[in-house]
Simulated assay, not measured.
Amino acid sequence: MRRTSFDGWPCSIARTVDILGDGWTLLVLREVFYGESRFDGFIGSLGIARNTLADRLRRLEDAGLLERRVYRTEPVRHEYLPTEKGRDFFGVLAAINAWGDRWLAGEEGVPVTMRHTACDHDTQPQVVCSSCGEPLRHADVAVRTGPGYPARLLERPDVQARFGVAPNR
């Protein structure tokens, strides 16, 4: 089955989904942040099929989120470590976790808590404005085209309506 690619779309969400658009990929990254780095460790913690895991690790490596390193030479064994790009994805997983804690945790409470070791307190991640520090809420955010938005699409009426762009005349 051929996979749909969103790589060329003028949208960072679509491009990210192109790399991370299935549950296994996100769970592999979760395990990396929990400290797992070895193929058999992922198998044990996730119960994922070997071929599926190999595909997700290859995809994450190709996308530059994980780096494969040899940790044993006889036989050759690799570990998978987050790159800077991969480490930067932690905030996304933390935000997904916070949403799940709020909306999906049962009466028994949240399944995993995050402790901010710098201040030694449990924490709930928040997405905040980089300028004023206020939480970002949908009602308080307007979207507009950025410098990387394809000029050829700006003439489309649906794009003009979505982003409030005046047609070029």
Rank of each mutant, 00 (worst) to 15 (best):
D88K: 13
V159Y: 02
A63N: 01
E134Y: 11
V110P: 02
H78F: 10
R144P: 04
G41Y: 02
V92E: 03
T123L: 10
D101Q: 05
G109P: 06
R30I: 02
L60V: 07
K85Q: 08
R77D: 05
E134W: 03
R38K: 10
D122S: 07
V141A: 03
S130H: 12
R3M: 15
P111T: 07
C119H: 13
A105C: 05
D7Y: 12
R162Q: 14
Q126A: 11
R152W: 15
Y80K: 05
L136Q: 15
T123V: 10
P147R: 09
F6P: 02
T4D: 12
G164M: 09
I96E: 13
S37Q: 04
P147L: 08
S5M: 08
C119D: 15
V92Y: 11
R69A: 11
I48M: 13
L26N: 05
R87I: 10
A14R: 05
H121P: 00
F90V: 09
M1T: 05
G44H: 13
D18L: 06
A49E: 12
R30L: 09
V76P: 00
Y80S: 03
G41W: 00
P147C: 01
E67H: 15
E107N: 10
T4Y: 00
R3S: 12
D140P: 09
G106T: 10
R2T: 04
G106M: 05
E61V: 07
V17T: 12
H78M: 06
M1D: 11
L46T: 00
R30W: 15
P167L: 09
R15M: 06
L81W: 02
E36R: 07
C11Q: 05
A98L: 06
L46Y: 04
S45L: 13
R137T: 15
P75L: 01
E134Q: 09
A166Q: 14
V110I: 13
G47H: 11
V128G: 03
C11F: 15
D40C: 07
I19K: 07
V128D: 08
F42G: 02
V32Q: 01
L93P: 03
W99F: 15
R156T: 12
P150W: 01
R3G: 06
R102G: 05
D101N: 09
L57Y: 07
Q160G: 04
Q126L: 13
S5A: 06
G91P: 08
S130K: 09
H116N: 15
D140Q: 13
F39W: 03
T52M: 14
T83G: 05
R2P: 01
V70N: 10
T52L: 06
V110K: 07
A105L: 04
M114T: 05
